[in-house]
Design a protein around this nucleic acid. Structure first.
Lengths: 230, 230
DNA sequence: CGGTTCGTTGAGATCGGTCAACTCAAGTGG
DNA sequence: CCACTTGAGTTGACCGATCTCAACGAACCG
């Protein structure tokens, strides 16, 4: 029952962003060797929309640098975030011909794109490419199933699970640089920003994590965090 | 924080069930024409395990009659239900080589099975079969995404959404014969049986639905139900 | 007729949401 | 350089939805 003012009015489309933003190591899950992206990386400004819900799915995207979120605005104005994507991750792979979520850049972000039809016709001939696309869909499926498992848990468990998930991506180091805001996290976890914030301080007070700056989380006691993840 | 006694100890494997159970019309989502199942339908007794979480995924299944649920037991004993499948639905299609959920028959159920390896090698030659498998994975993905959207809502909205989902399957008539127990529904929606039960009576008192018997739900005011779905 | 399983209902506890104030950092412009 | 603004995040007080615990009712079966 989160009634919220339909959040950030995503508007400014694309900026003349200049690289920077420390390219994350390599995106684990979707490091497709085969799907080679043509064209120069396209830059998007913070909060710029990459595609909108309901638009025809013309392209397939891969994050080069920065971070992307997919989201959906519900009838009552609540926003649900479907997933976060970082460098190396593939996104925008749709089943039907329309995007079921919209996608926005979280920070200055560069993505490469391929025409969907191109990939599809190529996949018709190349069985390995087809299998790869299927595998990518399968990974997505697994991630969403993991998301479901998060959403049935308590606030502490959700936040703990979220942090572990993010840490696993950042070459599983014991810290996380969060590209997204508390609102993004809240909308991903089905909580409010207040609860997310309170949970962070709770975890910090129990020395499970440290929060030197709002966007940087250090994991001090991973096993405690895993235990919380239930 | 649902601490619950790890529910029904699924045990009795397979019965000599004899057809009956009014074969539902035709499963909408997964009515695969191409994947032709060989072998006689295999009968499973109520609560019999069809496969277990972590087992190698040897087969692909299709419900002939009855109903199936996939579930996962969490570390603390909570159970999450991933999906329900009725006649015509395909299930057990895994990405990796292991089942990530277990599957159980909800009622007396018959399923046909195909060896996974068989389908896979066939798909290597037959592009249309491959595409079909991909599409099935995609439908699964969409369903799970819908599940996520349910889980962030209030109890009323979840139950309303669940009923509409079930009604949409039963050739979208204005009633539903629920094959599953309140516990199954609760574990699907991330609620307790008490809350599910209370929500049903609440909806009944506001004449949105009628509940002539516990397992039969009649939809009296579909638009009100849709509105609740948020 | 007990026993068992399933579902319903009630009363109280609790977790997370709501509303509101406050802090902090980063601009922005005089 | 200093107000002033703005957006993000934190914290507190209160409230309500949902969970917990418990009793009860109904259907089924030996």
């Amino acid at each position: 029952m989160l009634t919220r003012t339909a959040t950030q009015t995503v508007s400014s489309n694309r900026s003349f962003s200049h690289a920077s933003k420390a390219v994350p190591p390599f995106g684990l899950q979707e490091c497709e060797g085969m799907i080679e992206m043509m064209g120069a990386p396209m830059p998007f400004a913070r909060n710029a929309e990459i595609y909108g819900e309901g638009e025809p799915a013309e392209y397939l995207y891969k994050v080069v640098s920065g971070a992307v979120r997919t989201s959906k605005i519900l009838a009552d104005g609540r926003r649900q975030i479907g997933a976060f994507y970082i460098a190396g991750d593939l996104f925008g792979l749709e089943i039907g011909d329309e995007h079921t979520f919209s996608a926005e850049a979280i920070s200055e972000t560069k993505v490469v794109m391929v025409k969907r039809t191109t990939v599809m016709t190529m996949a018709q001939r190349d069985g390995s490419l087809a299998r790869e696309l299927w595998a990518a869909t399968g990974r997505e499926l697994r991630n969403v199933q993991g998301h479901v498992l998060l959403l049935i848990k308590s606030a502490q468990e959700r936040v703990a699970g979220f942090l572990l998930e993010m840490a696993a991506r950042n070459r599983s180091a014991d810290f996380v640089e969060l590209p997204m805001s508390r609102q993004d996290i809240a909308d991903y976890l089905g909580l409010t920003i207040e609860t997310v914030s309170r949970t962070f301080t709770l975890l910090e007070n129990s020395t499970v994590i440290a929060v030197p700056t709002a966007r940087r989380i250090e994991i001090r006691n991973r096993s405690a965090l895993s235990r919380l993840n239930s």
